[in-house]
Amino acid sequence: MTVPVLLGSVRRDRQGIRAARLIVQALEARGHEAPLVDPMELHLPLLDRMYKEHPAGEAPEPLERLATLYRRADGFMIVSGEYNNGIPPALKNLLDYFLEEYFWRPSGIVCYSAGQFGGVRAAMQLRMTLAELGMPSIPSLLPIPRIQQALGEDGVATDERTGKSAARFLDEFTWYARALRHQRAGGVPY
């Protein structure tokens, strides 16, 4: 399967890259393609025009590349920190460039924070946004509290709990992604 991993932070000392690396490595270990979509590398401006609002073939190159990737996707992994109890602005901006490309594909939410709650307050808001975009999130979350201690710079879990939680979360996500891929192959409601 193809599962883009959308990272939601452009902060200089961001910790979310650790969680993104964990998920990319875990998906690839299962034989899936897991390209990292990093807004820090894309340098997308604040949303002025969605991808679909550009004349055919005239969207900026990063948007064309993302649209091609997203159309191949079987699902999406969203890696989100929690900024003032909400979704990071870079993630919201990244998500809002597209719509139809997300339809009928599940999303998994990996949330994190430096504190004990692991970003779950942002995840609750993110669930609403992802559903509206047509890629509803699976029931489980993968919260990573105290990310600076739970994961190394390379994305490797420093404790057994995080690794086991990630494996169960990915088992569930894979089930949903396969089920929806099967249903999409037979057509969608409209």
Rank of each mutant, 00 (worst) to 15 (best):
M50L: 05
Q15F: 04
I87H: 04
T162Q: 04
R168W: 10
S140H: 14
Q25V: 00
V3W: 03
G81H: 11
Q25P: 00
L91V: 02
G118F: 05
G187A: 12
G163F: 03
M135S: 12
T158G: 12
D159N: 15
T174I: 13
R71T: 09
Y190G: 15
E160M: 12
V79A: 10
A122C: 03
G186S: 13
Y112K: 10
P35Q: 14
A122I: 01
L95A: 03
R146M: 14
G31V: 15
I78E: 05
G8D: 03
T162L: 08
R127E: 04
T174A: 15
A67W: 05
A29T: 13
A34T: 13
E132Q: 15
R121W: 06
F103S: 15
L133R: 06
A56S: 09
E160V: 12
M50W: 00
G155L: 01
E100C: 05
P45I: 09
M40G: 15
L6V: 03
V3M: 08
V3N: 01
S9A: 03
P35S: 07
M1K: 03
P35G: 09
A90R: 00
P45D: 08
T162F: 05
Q125G: 14
V110P: 04
W175I: 15
Q15D: 09
I138W: 15
Q148R: 10
P136K: 05
S107N: 13
L180I: 04
P39I: 08
R11T: 00
Y83S: 00
R12K: 15
L27A: 08
L141P: 05
E101T: 06
A29S: 15
A56I: 10
H54R: 07
P89K: 06
R30Y: 12
F117S: 12
E28C: 07
R146T: 14
A67R: 09
D171Y: 14
D13S: 01
E132R: 14
W104Q: 13
R105L: 01
M128Y: 08
